[in-house]
Write a protein that binds this DNA or RNA. Sequence first.
DNA 1: AAATTGTTTAACCATGTGGTCAAAAGTAAA
DNA 2: TTTACTTTTGACCACATGGTTAAACAATTT
Lengths: 201, 201
Amino acid sequence: MTTSGENTEIQILVAAREVFIAKGYESARMQEIADRAGINKALLHYYFRSKENLFDAVFSEVAAHLFPAVRQLLESDLAITEKISFFVKIYLTALHENPYIPTFVINTLNSNPERFLKYIQKSGINPMMLQKQIDGEAARGLIRPIKAEHLLVNTIAMCVFPVIARPIIQNIFQMSDAEYQAYLELRQTEVIDFVHKSLAV
Amino acid sequence: MTTSGENTEIQILVAAREVFIAKGYESARMQEIADRAGINKALLHYYFRSKENLFDAVFSEVAAHLFPAVRQLLESDLAITEKISFFVKIYLTALHENPYIPTFVINTLNSNPERFLKYIQKSGINPMMLQKQIDGEAARGLIRPIKAEHLLVNTIAMCVFPVIARPIIQNIFQMSDAEYQAYLELRQTEVIDFVHKSLAV
DNA sequence: AAATTGTTTAACCATGTGGTCAAAAGTAAA
DNA sequence: TTTACTTTTGACCACATGGTTAAACAATTT
């Protein structure tokens, strides 16, 4: 077995991830992926039989990096407020490094929900424990009572939205690129603050 | 001048809006739009010279309905907390009736930012006044100090995100369609509460 | 009624796309 | 070297798509 095989397969996956994330499934072109991988288009079909297949391979990789952090955090034994802090920091940092993923996910989610949901299933994320913890801390008067499905959604929303709506925000608030970067970094403490204050009894 | 002309033009716009919003620009097919409008495909090009043109026409309509509410609200003389309440109610109701618009906007935003931004420019939304009001109320001890670009983004994020991430949320929290509808309605008071609590001094 | 103008259609075209195939090039074992 | 196998390529195909065109149809004007 030659090593060149594994090599080109990786090259293809890297190129495919770039193109799929930047353009979405429909607008991504097999030719462009081949070009970027420095190979012939037919070779794409040799390694991954179809565009659909190639996309799935790419998506698996992305999904594999997406959920573990969330799950690990939810299962840790930190206090709710601390979980929020950690979560926001981890999430915003990850988004800062991969700003195209949310749009990519949303697109996939719309054009083919099953494709995404099967990875959620596999991730084993389960909010029951979180709700229990919230109820416990609320009973002890540490935070106000709240449903997990609101707290979690609110927190993730505030992290993700600025990334997907970047052009709008930059435009309305007249931010330069540098200012927008600063804004994103400020949001870390800002979001944490916002949630903590909202949870106070 | 016959009335049939205006009629078909409207029929085309209606059909085009449905298809574009449901599928996005790339995946939308001129043939499908023609079919849904009950006309020949060539007629699309007779009224709107190209797909690009047709899309712009559709987008103008959507954008025209999107911003006035926001602007009107920001310019009203309600207290911040009341603006928030109104805004969330208006926004969530609008989203409930047009759940496909956010994804549509995000897609457009990604593939062709200028197309969207020019409508924002025209809308004349200006957050300066909002910031002034916030500063004023904060100085009087009515709310805590906060930057408008965080308060506004946070609020919109919490409204929009549940709509675009619906499949994920429904899946993780194991909600039926009916339960999800109930969840969305609950969010109205929930989001308002969340923001108000976070703004308390 | 004839002519003019606006509306609608069926058939067609050019192009780009995902995908295929047979043959070449490279590699390892006999 | 020969053989068998894998990897890579260029040329090609079928098909869908946005767009065009010439002709038919409808309505309005003269």
